[in-house]
């Protein structure tokens, strides 16, 4: 194997966590083990998403500190650098981590390649002409407040109420199980009726929810002291609604595309206290507090963290419906 030509280390003045926008100071230490021609030395900043997902890596910035220099054996070279990072906070959830990685690099002019056959086929060995050292740094928001970017929103039916869900599920399962047991021929007419009933239930659910709830419009209004107001109106003026329960959630959703079978995992990170309104009038106003130390809306390839406004309303016939939609938030400097 070729002998290692240099030692490269990146160190920082403090361990962190750093505040977004804070000046980060560090140094790259290089001790060559033989005389070398340095082509370039510097650092790059990458954002990494790791967790129950395919690894994601985003290049944010790169800076060369020094170029084209001859370095001598056993001498210690120290290169100071500083930068300001103010993009994403680092984050540790149940299913993902958002990490900021600082990579120090040194590229040397090509040395004489090894004649060893083993070296040629071993693609996993370190590249002899390109050296790296990395450190992961934590960044947190500095004196922030939440801002709701979405100003207006229409809520949509988003899930079945439980009795409906169970009815449809039972009808569907009956069909599959009896087919599997070879009872299809005997009971096919009953099962077709059951299946049709399931479909009718789905259809009626959507028609009912539309006619009872009408078109639900939301307006957001930010108030001081970490609070925000949600104003909800219905095109049907809530005439057939006896009770409304409104809350918001922060959800971490990851799509695991590793391997041959993709699947989604959801984590409810935050649930606000529900606000209850009995016999609502035309305008329903809720006052919510922002959470403490939760992430803003985030979206990457297989990861997203989103805020979701949810409204469950009970019709005068006692049937419950749930509507909801996502709204976008951002942390801004106070």
């Amino acid at each position: 194997m070729l002998k290692q030509v240099s030692r490269l280390r990146v160190v920082f003045e403090k361990k962190g966590p750093f505040k977004l926008g804070e000046l980060v100071k560090g140094k790259i230490i290089l001790i060559p083990e033989k005389d070398v021609n340095l082509k370039s030395l510097g650092y790059k900043i990458n954002l990494e998403i790791r967790g129950l997902i395919e690894f994601e890596d985003y290049h944010l910035s790169k800076k060369n500190i020094v170029e084209d220099q001859t370095l001598y054996k056993d001498k210690e070279y120290i290169y100071h650098f500083e930068f300001i990072y103010n993009k994403y906070e680092t984050y540790k959830g149940l299913n993902i981590e958002i990490l900021v990685k600082v990579v120090a690099f040194a590229n040397f002019l090509p040395l004489i390649p090894s004649e060893s056959f083993l070296d040629k086929i071993n693609v996993f060995k370190s590249d002899i002409n390109n050296w790296e050292d990395k450190k992961y740094l934590n960044f947190i928001s500095n004196a922030y407040q939440y801002k709701i970017i979405t100003k207006e929103l229409e809520l949509k039916p988003h899930s079945f109420s439980r009795p409906y869900f169970y009815s449809v599920w039972i009808f569907m399962m009956l069909g599959f199980v009896t087919s599997f047991l070879g009872l299809w021929d005997t009971y096919k007419y009953y099962l077709l009726i059951a299946f049709a009933l399931g479909l009718i239930l789905i259809l009626s659910y959507y028609l009912l929810t539309k006619s009872i709830a009408g078109k639900i419009n939301i307006q957001f209004e930010e108030i001081q002291d970490g609070k925000f107001k949600v104003k909800a109106t219905s095109s049907n003026k809530w005439k057939q609604v006896s009770m409304i329960s409104m809350n918001y959630r922060i959800i971490e959703e990851v799509t695991d595309n590793r391997g041959t079978t993709p699947y989604k995992v959801k984590l409810f990170k935050f649930n606000s206290k529900p606000q209850i309104f009995k016999r609502p009038n035309n305008l329903v106003e809720s006052l919510f507090s922002f959470p403490i130390d939760e992430p803003q809306t985030i979206k990457f390839q297989d990861v997203r963290i989103y805020w979701f406004l949810e409204m469950e309303f009970t019709s005068i016939f006692g049937i419950k419906f749930t509507h909801g939609n996502e709204f976008i938030t951002k942390k801004v400097k106070r």
Binding site: I53, L99, Y136
Partner: peptide
């Protein structure tokens, strides 16, 4: 640990 070791791996980490 710099991060949780049991998450998805970068392509160059898979052989390791």
């Amino acid at each position: 640990f710099q991060y949780n070791p049991f998450g998805g791996l970068a392509l160059n980490e898979i052989p390791k």
